[in-house]
Structures are given as structure tokens and as C-alpha cells.
């Protein structure tokens, strides 16, 4: 169970996320900054709900939705797709 991959893009296992939460991380932002979970090509589209479930308490999970927004782009885009033309 511990070896189960939570973030597929960055290959972060359950045990790494659990350890980070045990050491005091209580938001998805902290888990991300400390483990790279959610930093891969899918930008947490797969692992985000799983990581959110591993956060300590409901109260703090509620705070997560205020703190963690979503950033552009919604899907990976070629740099040239950002051009004006």
C-alpha cells in the first residue's frame, strides 16, 4: 500500500505524501512544494483529489480550496499557441 503511486507524473508514492503530512503539511500547496506531487505534465489533474483526501482534517481541507487555485493553461499548450496571431 505504502508504495502505491499517488502522483503518476512525478512517481510520488503514498508513503512520501503521508510522511509530509505527518511532518506538518496541511495544504495541497505544501505537499506539492515539498514532494513535487502535482508538478508533472498533468498538473495534479489525476492526483489532486487523492492528495486532498490525505490532508489532515476536514477543516483544513476546506481551507485548501481557498488557498489553492487553478493556473493557466487548463491543458498543456505549445508555446506558439499563446501567440497573438
Amino acid at each position: 500500500m505504502d508504495e502505491m503511486i499517488i502522483c503518476r507524473c512525478e512517481e510520488i508514492p503514498l508513503k512520501t505524501i503521508r510522511k509530509t503530512v505527518q511532518e506538518g503539511a496541511c495544504t495541497i500547496r505544501e505537499v506539492k512544494l515539498q514532494t513535487r506531487a502535482g508538478m508533472g505534465i498533468c498538473q495534479g489533474r489525476t492526483c489532486r483529489p487523492l492528495v486532498e483526501k490525505l490532508l489532515p482534517s476536514e477543516k483544513e481541507q476546506a481551507a485548501v480550496y481557498q488557498i489553492s487555485g487553478y493556473r493557466l493553461p487548463v491543458r498543456p499548450l505549445l508555446l506558439q499557441d499563446f501567440f497573438k496571431e
Binding site: P73, L78, L79, F82
Partner: peptide, 30 residues
Amino acid sequence: VPPEIYASIAEHACRIIPSLRGIRMIRTMV
């Protein structure tokens, strides 16, 4: 961030390094 800023950064970068055009961007940060 208004889209013109993303466009300006992207166009400027690709003028200096043309091969960046075909690389995928996964995120932006402010």
C-alpha cells in the same frame, strides 16, 4: 494576467529561441 502578456512573453522568447515554439507549457505562475 491579461492574455497579451502571455502572448508577448511567448513571441519574444520564440524570436530568440525558435525551437521553443513546439514545446508544451504545462503551467504559468505569477
